[in-house]
């Protein structure tokens, strides 16, 4: 076992475990893993203070490939395990990796509570709109009509939208990235880690085997510029090859519209400036879906609030302020009698 001294500058390689990575060749998970290795090195975190907790799924194998502490748990329950860990060890950097099925099907309840409690963990939801590990059944995020072994005639139920769900749970940090956009992902990881409280990051991930090209409509090179809106706090929400398209708020309908500057009277002044703290706009942004709208990427919402484990620790500390309790005294408090 190699022990690094805490002052040594670590590289991406130092964050890769010695385990052979077993995802299918070409799986989007590889790119996310690589981005994470680099990002952690860039952030200068200590591997011994970093923990990856996951549920079950292809995506949830992630911790095995990290040279940090890691816990591959049970299907859907990673938020609960991460909550217990964070309650017991608030000082640790806790990351949670989950899939669309793990997080929103079997684990929906736990994810909801982790988000609304605002426990200080970084949640990475790898959304491939399919159950990868169990060989390709449709998932809660699959679009209507998804053909799969369990839905041979196409799925009929309406999908869940991860970022809409997260905001609905009162998440205070909601972001979205794409598996292969390493630089942007690295920034999201860094922002998520810096955010105190639950940080929710949806990562669009291509499952090359069971749902290939599900996101081609906005990830293909040819369309990417026109179909991706990378939002940045304080900057105009502009996109497109010419960066002449943008989002405008229709004050009649309270809906967002795509406008092209110079067309139909639209001017640069019409384009919204992204304000991470504006929840009203955030709610509109997470509702936008291609092909009518561009896929919104980046930090969509960030407005910190006190985190759960910090509040719990504060109560514990207040109770302990008068010194540690004496069990012998506690058991003898109240009505007792002597027998001699």
């Amino acid at each position: 076992m190699n022990v690094q001294s805490p002052t040594e500058k670590l590289t991406a390689k130092d964050f890769a475990s010695d385990q052979e990575v077993r995802w299918c060749p070409g799986c989007g998970d590889y790119a996310i893993l690589k981005a994470m290795h680099k990002s952690l090195a860039d952030m200068g975190v200590r591997p011994e203070n970093t923990v990856f907790i996951s549920g079950i799924g292809c995506s949830s194998r992630f911790p095995y490939y990290m040279a940090t502490y890691g816990f591959h748990t049970i299907h859907g329950r990673a938020p609960a395990i991460a909550t217990g860990l964070k309650l017991s060890r608030p000082e640790l950097d806790v990351w949670m990796v989950t899939g669309d099925g793990d997080a929103l099907s079997i684990g929906g309840n736990h994810l909801f509570h982790a988000l609304r409690r605002n426990i200080d963990i970084n949640i990475l939801l790898f959304n491939n709109e399919i159950y990868g590990l169990t060989k390709g059944q449709y998932s809660p995020t699959s679009r209507v009509g998804q053909r799969s072994p369990s839905t041979p005639m196409g799925s009929v139920d309406s999908p869940a939208e991860p970022c809409v769900f997260a905001l609905g749970c009162n998440a205070r940090f909601v972001a979205r990235g794409i598996d292969v956009q390493a630089k942007e992902l690295g920034e999201l990881f860094s922002r998520a880690r810096a955010h105190k409280g639950a940080s929710f990051v949806e990562i669009i991930q291509n499952c090359i085997v069971y749902n290939d090209a599900a996101f081609a409509g906005f990830t293909e090179k040819a369309v990417a510029a026109d179909m991706q809106l990378h939002v940045k706090h304080g900057e105009k929400m502009l996109f497109g090859k010419e960066r002449n398209k943008g989002l405008k708020l229709n004050t009649q309908t309270f809906a967002l519209e795509v406008v092209t500057i110079g067309e139909n009277g639209a001017t640069e002044a019409d384009i919204l400036v992204h304000d991470e703290k504006n929840k009203v706009i955030a709610n509109l942004l997470v509702g936008l879906r291609p092909p009518r709208f561009p896929e919104v990427l980046g930090v969509i919402y960030c407005d910190p609030a006190p985190s759960y484990e910090a509040a719990v620790a504060a109560q514990d500390a207040a109770a302990r302020a008068k010194g540690p309790g004496d069990l012998d005294k506690l058991m003898r408090a109240g009505n007792t009698w002597q027998v001699s």
Partner: peptide, 16 residues
């Protein structure tokens, strides 16, 4: 939020 989460959180605490 439920007994599953309770047991899992206890396991997370022991892990810590």
């Amino acid at each position: 939020e439920d007994e599953i989460a309770a047991c899992c959180a206890a396991i997370g605490a022991s892990y810590g």
